[in-house]
């Protein structure tokens, strides 16, 4: 059988990492605000952008 491609596995691992990062109880950690912007808002968009950035890096990298 053809082995699952490493890119697909890396992306799936990223998905598995995203689940705990974007759900409770971790979500209850950020509190207060930073530069006047609520920490929860920063945390959610930050983690989300991070996941997207990593996914782009994994998906668009030239496979060797």
């Amino acid at each position: 059988m053809k082995r699952a491609s490493p890119t697909r596995q890396r992306l799936a691992a990223l998905g598995l990492l995203g689940v705990p990062l974007l759900t409770y109880p971790l979500l209850s950690l950020p509190g207060g605000s930073l530069w006047g912007i609520p920490a929860g808002y920063l945390y959610l968009f930050g983690v989300w952008a991070g996941l997207i950035g990593l996914a782009a890096w994994v998906a668009e990298r030239r496979s060797k």
Partner: peptide
């Protein structure tokens, strides 16, 4: 509040499982 975001986080995570989609 921020709970509207869940509707967009779910698809982000689901799409990462490229193997299933392919």
């Amino acid at each position: 509040g921020l709970s509207f975001l869940t509707i967009y986080l779910g698809p982000t995570l689901m799409l990462l499982f490229v193997g299933v989609i392919i």
